[in-house]
Amino acid sequence: MDISEVARRAGVPASTLRFYEQKGLIVSTGRRGLRRQFAPGVLEQLALIALGRSVGFSLDEIALMFGADGQPRIDRQLLANKAEELDQAIRRLTAMRDGLRHAAACPAPSHMECPSFRRLLGLAAGRPGSGRGRKTPARKGRPAPKRP
């Protein structure tokens, strides 16, 4: 297949294919005139690259997933580590989503007076202990905010 066919079928610009080739992620089989030619297996390689990018692997990490022959050689521990990173991100994003929902309906006179909103600020600033696991006691005269 020539580069335009691969680009069309993979849904990526030809410039991306040239960049991936330069990085050693894919290899062309030669040229027909000025157009690079690729083996049909390149589409599977591009799908793996797209999957890796969508879960947050860098191109250098993805390059390690291919052997010299272009066949996938995926380190299972690398996958497990990335899955744990995603779990942590999901927990952080869930806490932020819940905090935003609470802040949108919070009865406190000011968001800065709302313990849940202040936890959200801490979470956004990356301070430890700002996540969902920590409970803030109810303020005097006010019930604790309800979680959705």
Rank of each mutant, 00 (worst) to 15 (best):
1 M>C: 03
2 D>V: 00
5 E>V: 14
11 G>V: 13
13 P>V: 15
14 A>Q: 14
21 E>D: 14
22 Q>H: 15
26 I>Q: 00
29 T>C: 00
30 G>L: 05
32 R>T: 10
36 R>V: 04
37 Q>E: 13
40 P>C: 03
40 P>L: 03
41 G>I: 01
42 V>D: 00
43 L>S: 07
44 E>P: 00
47 A>G: 13
52 G>R: 01
54 S>T: 15
57 F>H: 11
57 F>E: 04
58 S>A: 04
59 L>C: 10
59 L>V: 09
60 D>C: 09
64 L>T: 14
67 G>N: 08
68 A>G: 04
69 D>P: 04
72 P>V: 12
74 I>N: 03
84 E>D: 07
85 E>G: 05
85 E>P: 03
87 D>Q: 12
87 D>Y: 12
89 A>V: 15
89 A>L: 13
91 R>K: 14
93 L>M: 07
94 T>M: 08
95 A>G: 10
96 M>V: 12
96 M>N: 06
97 R>F: 05
98 D>M: 11
100 L>D: 04
102 H>I: 12
111 H>Q: 12
112 M>Y: 13
112 M>S: 15
114 C>R: 01
115 P>Q: 06
117 F>M: 04
120 L>C: 09
120 L>N: 04
121 L>Y: 12
123 L>F: 08
124 A>T: 14
125 A>H: 12
125 A>R: 15
125 A>T: 07
127 R>P: 01
131 G>W: 05
133 G>H: 13
133 G>N: 08
134 R>C: 06
137 P>V: 11
141 G>S: 06
142 R>A: 05
143 P>K: 10
144 A>D: 11
145 P>R: 02
148 P>C: 03
